[in-house]
Simulated scan of single mutants.
Amino acid sequence: METLDYRFDGHTAVHFPPQAVLVGVLASGNLEVLLEAAPLDGAMQVRIVTAASGFGSIWQAVIADFAARHPLRDVQVSINDAGATPAVVSLRLDQAVQALHEGAPQ
């Protein structure tokens, strides 16, 4: 198991639904993504726990791309990975942001 932590400046304020957002299923070749509100002085923090060690540079590229597309403020992103491909990671992250916007109070 490997744990990777990243922090990015956020620009987009988020209105969270009453509960945190969880997408995906932690199973072979997949992952789950949890988005939670957190007091991070406008930053987005990402923690990845993965069964596949040695892929830090790939994770950094995928997460940096996500942060550039979705610069969320005061959001903790937790990823539990069971060997998902970068495409699946991006899909799940986008799915989590969509669920966040759909479930946010208006």
Rank of each mutant, 00 (worst) to 15 (best):
A13D: 12
V14N: 01
V14C: 02
H15E: 15
F16T: 07
P17V: 05
P18A: 03
Q19Y: 14
V21K: 00
G24M: 04
G24S: 03
G24Y: 11
V25K: 07
V25C: 15
L26F: 08
L26W: 05
L26V: 06
L26I: 08
L26G: 12
A27F: 02
A27E: 15
G29S: 02
N30W: 07
L31D: 08
E36D: 11
E36C: 11
E36I: 01
A37H: 10
A38F: 03
P39H: 04
P39S: 04
L40A: 01
L40W: 04
D41H: 12
A43C: 02
A43I: 02
M44T: 00
V46H: 03
V46K: 08
V46P: 01
I48P: 01
V49D: 13
V49M: 15
T50K: 01
A51H: 11
A52W: 14
S53T: 13
G54K: 13
F55Q: 10
G56A: 04
G56T: 09
G56K: 02
S57A: 09
S57L: 13
Q60N: 10
Q60T: 10
Q60R: 09
V62F: 00
V62S: 12
V62A: 13
V62I: 13
V62N: 07
I63S: 05
D65N: 11
F66R: 03
A67M: 01
A68F: 00
A68K: 00
R69P: 04
R69I: 05
R69S: 05
H70P: 09
P71T: 06
L72A: 02
R73N: 12
D74K: 04
V75L: 00
V75C: 08
Q76K: 12
Q76L: 12
S78E: 11
I79N: 08
I79H: 01
N80T: 11
D81T: 01
G83N: 05
G83S: 01
A84T: 12
T85R: 07
